[in-house]
């Protein structure tokens, strides 16, 4: 309770510690989330996804700057990959945003994927709640950017920005990875580079062919110039900020915001169920050594995975297995 109050009062240490506890799967974290949950749901959550080297962090930095100019407070959750070999991670997105480090209206927190797939960390959902409870007006969530299937962001964000750069075979990647469907806004970044017009045209073609626009919103394609060119970059960022706001307004005016929030909430519930049902069961099976025994049984073909799973469910979730 104490921690929850402190977070609402804007205590940065308390907030960052709670996020840490969520990441570390410390059980008290759940209690605190329970306390802050009623105070969440106010921020506009914006996801930024795209391939590595697409310049996502630089755009996030630009978005921070613009929202601050409009006097909105900003929280950033930036996800980087955990090394599957060492379990360590270098979280380097923050470097691009360091000029905002001292701004009390900005909170930046880096998260490692810790094995989660889909471009985000498992803790992201709850971390968004924490930043929301801190009272931030806007929450920017930057995905890993491995070029893999990074569609998880759709379960968390109201607005998704997909960032592409010319000359990296991005358009093909994007279609393959299924991120065309999740984009509310496309950014062709580093648009001063050769091939940006071509990329723009290809995106247009794909959009023309697909079922998008749905519900009256056709994802705009913005060209943003080299971040080293202050005038061009500023122009691009102004446009982007307007489109982001435009998209949010559209969601509200067409009442689609409700659908998005419902999807987000459903996902949260899903995660919570997993965390409260599957994980404790797994933990017991692991600590008792039963899991290993089960594997042995399976290896010897003395049973099959479904029979064992139904048996476990039968022990813990009696009602479920009844036909």
């Amino acid at each position: 309770m104490e921690l929850g109050k402190r977070i609402k009062a804007g205590d940065i240490r308390a907030a960052s510690r709670l996020i840490r506890n969520i990441e570390d799967n410390v059980s008290e974290a759940k209690t605190t989330i329970k306390h802050i949950f009623p105070f969440t749901g106010n921020a506009h959550v914006i996801g930024i996804t795209g391939s590595p080297g697409a310049g996502k962090s630089t755009l996030v930095d630009g978005l921070i700057e613009w929202h601050r100019k409009l006097d909105r407070t900003v929280g950033v959750l930036a996800v980087d990959p955990t090394s599957p070999f060492t379990g360590g991670a270098i979280l380097g997105d923050r470097i691009r945003m360091q000029r905002h480090a001292e701004d009390p209206g900005v909170f930046v927190r880096s998260l490692a994927t810790r094995g989660a797939l889909g471009g985000l960390a498992k803790a992201v959902g709850d971390a968004i709640h924490v930043v929301d409870a801190m009272g931030k007006d806007v929450i920017l969530v930057e995905t890993v950017g491995t070029g893999q299937q990074e569609v998880e962001i759709i379960n968390h964000a109201h607005t998704v920005i997909v960032v592409l750069v010319p000359g990296m075979g991005d358009e093909i990647q994007a279609i393959k990875a299924g991120i065309m469907e999740i984009a509310d806004i496309f950014v062709v970044n580093k648009a001063d580079r050769e091939g940006s017009q071509k990329l723009h045209r290809e995106l247009m073609t794909v959009l023309d062919m697909s079922k998008i626009p749905k519900d009256g919103w056709r994802p705009p394609i913005l060209m943003i110039g080299n971040a080293f060119d202050p005038v061009e970059f500023d122009r691009g960022m102004t446009e982007l900020t307007e489109k982001v706001k435009g998209h949010y307004d559209h969601l509200i005016s067409t009442n689609q915001i409700g659908d998005r929030i419902r999807r987000k909430t459903r996902h949260e519930l899903n995660e919570a169920l997993r965390s409260c049902i599957l994980e404790p069961v797994m933990k017991m099976l692991v600590t008792s050594g039963e899991l290993d025994t089960m594997i042995d049984v399976l290896l010897k073909k003395e049973s099959d995975p479904y029979t064992i799973a139904e048996d476990v469910a039968g022990r813990y979730l009696q009602d479920c297995i009844k036909p």
Partner: peptide, 9 residues
């Protein structure tokens, strides 16, 4: 990182 820490640079 190689030692398994999460590093913020």
């Amino acid at each position: 990182r190689d030692a398994g820490f999460e590093v913020i640079y």
